[in-house]
């Protein structure tokens, strides 16, 4: 019979017993790995991810016409640009731009401009999609909230917005089928 039932075993600071250490480490690693499913369940689920790309059939969009589609919960402006609009966009010197970007970099196929319709100032949806709406001083889009003006390439020209309208990831599956995202 032992009298030594008090603090005993691996608890004292000096004896780092391998068995207790490995038990603790094993349990700890297991615990950390076990936590991952809980955290990951908060990430976008498969059905949400499936909607993270959309395909848009633009065969019915005429020259000079603009359409809006919804992508990842946000409006996306698709502009089938006229020759004039393209020229104006391409002829702009970069020094005129707050957020310098060439039109070529933003619209690989010049007749199609696709931008996310969210003002880079504080997030309102700019006007200009409908023919009856204001387009701002550069014929692009106009944000009614704080008067940001965007040009025919969706670049900020006047007003408080710091950046151009964002261009989403894009690819042309065919001449009339655009994959966004």
């Amino acid at each position: 019979m032992s009298d030594d039932t008090q603090d005993h075993g691996g608890h004292s600071g000096n004896r780092r017993d391998f068995l207790y250490l490995s038990a603790g480490a094993f349990a700890g690693v297991g615990g950390a790995i076990a936590l991952w499913p809980f955290v990951d369940s908060l990430n976008p689920a498969a059905d949400v991810l499936a909607l993270s790309t959309i395909e848009v059939d633009v065969s019915q969009v005429e020259v000079g016409q603009r359409v809006t589609v919804k992508w990842q919960g946000k409006p996306v402006f698709i502009d089938h640009r006229t020759e004039t609009a393209i020229e104006e966009a391409r002829d702009t010197p970069l020094s005129d731009l707050r957020d310098p970007q060439t039109d070529e970099a933003r619209a690989e196929r010049p007749e199609w401009l696709v931008v996310i319709g969210v003002c880079t100032h504080l997030g309102c949806v700019p006007k200009g999609q409908k023919p009856s709406e204001a387009r701002g001083d550069w014929g692009g889009w106009f944000c009614p909230c704080h008067a940001s003006h965007y040009d025919t390439s969706g670049r900020i020209r006047k007003g408080p917005a710091p950046l151009n309208l964002l261009v989403p990831p894009l690819s042309f599956l065919s001449d009339t089928n655009i994959k966004i995202g």
Binding site: P37, F38, D40, S41, N43, A45, A46, D47, V48
Partner: peptide, 13 residues
Amino acid sequence: ERIMRDVNFGWLL
């Protein structure tokens, strides 16, 4: 069913 199929590790939870 969405939890079981689409949510990451939903079936496990």
